[in-house]
């Protein structure tokens, strides 16, 4: 019996090494000069930050790529989309679940039907639409009309605010909040907006956390869309930044430092919200 348990732990240890190995290799190598990365390859040292460790690679990466700019771009894109997304989608769910109006059943069915359409199908036509769409920009202190959404931050935000799946999540959650709460608030003279903002949303913290994680992950990992609509550096997100850096350098340590920086924010969210995180991601999978 004990042998069986020992074997099980051995298997789990090997599997843990397989699943963590590449990530440990990435982080450890980011602190090492290339010669040491290569000489460590044939031992366990490949996975440990030992030997001639320094922050040189990190300094080099910041010096050679506008990593800081790309990082801020991605943070802005993700944060604004998360905030607006939670507001817009929860409002829609509230309108569909808490208010009675004509056509709402049809609209709910339509929104759920949209879940079948993958973004990959929409990317090229949407690119053609935003190419010629005007936007009001700020130029030298005055407002100007810009003739295209290309090479902007908003082109990476606006299409991803409304999210049928997040609406669905809020809708399901609101269903379980008793109507008596609404009625009590209405007795106290609350209007619909106040019921939404003061009664439902404060009760919806778990689903807000889930939506935050889902939207943040999706936005931080954006790759296909920015490839299509962002050419310059000014509004480039970090995923395109690292891909381009990878394409033009032969320095492993620097690429690993870049990769570690890109992974850090997600890892942070993961560590802080671990339980919630796993449940959300699994929940996102269970939408069928």
């Amino acid at each position: 019996m004990n042998l069986k348990l020992a074997l099980r732990y051995l298997l789990l240890a090997i599997l843990s090494m397989i699943f963590l190995g590449p990530i440990l290799f990435m982080v450890s190598s980011s602190f090492k000069p290339d010669e040491q990365i290569f000489s460590d390859l044939r031992s366990m040292r490949a996975f440990l930050p030992v030997g001639d460790v320094s922050l040189d690679n990190y300094e080099q990466v910041f010096a050679q790529s506008r990593l800081f700019l790309y990082f801020i771009n991605s943070v802005l894109i993700s944060a604004i989309t998360v905030i607006l997304g939670i507001l817009v989608n929860s409002m829609a769910a509230f309108g569909l679940q808490r208010v009675v109006w004509r056509g709402q059943a049809l609209l709910l069915a339509l929104i759920l039907a949209l879940l079948v359409i993958p973004f990959e199908v929409l990317a090229i036509p949407l690119m053609m639409i935003v190419a010629k769409l005007p936007w009001i920009g700020v130029d030298a202190g005055g407002l100007t009309i810009v003739g295209s959404w290309f090479n902007s931050l908003h082109v990476q935000i606006v299409p991803f605010i409304a999210n049928a799946f997040v609406i669905f999540l809020f809708y399901q959650f609101f269903k379980d909040i008793p109507l008596e709460l609404d009625d009590a608030a209405r007795m106290d003279g609350a209007n619909l907006w106040q019921i939404y903002w003061r009664i439902l949303m404060p009760n919806a913290k778990p689903v807000i956390a889930t939506a935050t994680i889902i939207l943040f992950l999706a936005m931080w990992n954006q790759y296909l869309w920015p490839i299509l609509v962002i050419q310059g550096q000014e509004t480039r997100p970090i995923m395109v930044g690292i891909q381009q850096f990878f394409g033009r350098t032969a320095d492993w340590g620097q690429v690993m430092a870049y990769a570690t920086i890109v992974t850090l924010p997600v890892l942070l969210v993961f560590v802080v919200f671990q339980r919630r995180f796993v449940q959300s991601v699994a929940g996102a999978g269970l939408k069928g």
Binding site: M91, G95, L96, V100, L122
Partner: peptide
């Protein structure tokens, strides 16, 4: 909840508009 055609649409409209822009329009396109 309460029956209110205008408010119901008002709450749902921003999302509908954006979904129309980012999914339905490109899908038809």
């Amino acid at each position: 909840g309460a029956r209110n055609d205008k408010k119901g649409i008002a709450f749902t409209f921003p999302a509908l508009f954006l979904l129309g822009f980012s999914i339905i329009l490109p899908f038809l396109a």
